[in-house]
Amino acid sequence: MNVTVFGATGGVGSQVVDQLRSRGHTVTAYVRNPAKVSIAWDENVTVVVGHLNDAEQIDRAVQGADAVISALGPSLDRKATGLPLIEGTRNIVEAMQRHGVRRYIGNGTPSVLDPREKPTWQTRLSTFMAKTFLRRAYDELLGMSEIVMTSELDWTIVRFLAPKDGPGAGRLRQGFYGHDRLGFNITRADIAAFTAGQIDDDRYIAAAPAISN
Results as ranks from 00 to 15, higher is better:
V62D: 03
V101L: 09
P74N: 04
G11S: 13
R116T: 15
V45G: 09
N91T: 09
I211A: 09
G175I: 11
G13S: 05
D77V: 10
Q15Y: 00
I211R: 03
E152P: 02
F128M: 15
S151T: 05
I86R: 01
A192Y: 00
A192V: 02
S145G: 12
L125C: 06
I69M: 05
G73I: 03
G100K: 01
R136M: 11
N53V: 09
L113A: 13
E87V: 14
D54V: 10
D180N: 14
R116V: 15
A35V: 04
D180K: 06
T127A: 15
K79R: 13
S111L: 15
D77H: 05
F160D: 10
Q63E: 14
G82I: 08
D200E: 14
G11P: 00
S151A: 12
E56C: 06
Q19G: 10
S22E: 07
D165P: 12
N107E: 12
I69G: 11
Y138K: 08
V93L: 04
F184N: 12
S145W: 00
L142F: 11
L125R: 09
R135N: 15
A29N: 04
G170S: 08
A95M: 01
E140S: 11
Q57Y: 02
A137F: 08
I147H: 01
L85K: 07
M129P: 06
L52W: 01
S111P: 07
N107M: 14
D66N: 13
G10H: 04
F176K: 03
I86H: 02
Q63R: 14
R32D: 08
Y30R: 03
T150A: 06
R103P: 04
T4L: 06
L72A: 04
I191T: 01
I186E: 01
V17G: 03
R78A: 14
W41K: 05
N213W: 00
G166S: 09
R103M: 12
D66R: 09
E152M: 11
E152C: 09
N107Q: 14
L134A: 15
R135T: 14
R124E: 15
V31R: 11
G106D: 01
P84L: 09
T26Q: 07
L142G: 00
D42Y: 01
G64H: 04
A65K: 07
I211Q: 06
L72I: 12
P110T: 13
R188H: 04
I86C: 11
R23P: 00
A169P: 00
V47C: 08
E152W: 01
L172C: 10
T187D: 02
A61K: 04
R23Y: 00
W41L: 10
V47I: 09
S145M: 06
V3Y: 00
D42S: 13
G88R: 03
F6V: 11
W121Y: 14
T4V: 15
W155I: 02
G50V: 11
G7Y: 00
Q19P: 07
M144V: 15
G106A: 10
L76S: 07
T9K: 03
R78Q: 12
P163N: 06
T9M: 05
I211W: 02
F128R: 14
T127G: 14
L153W: 03
S151R: 05
S145V: 11
Y138I: 11
R159F: 06
G88A: 12
V45L: 05
M149N: 05
V48R: 05
G50H: 07
I69F: 03
N107A: 14
W155F: 06
I58M: 03
D66P: 08
G143D: 07
L142C: 07
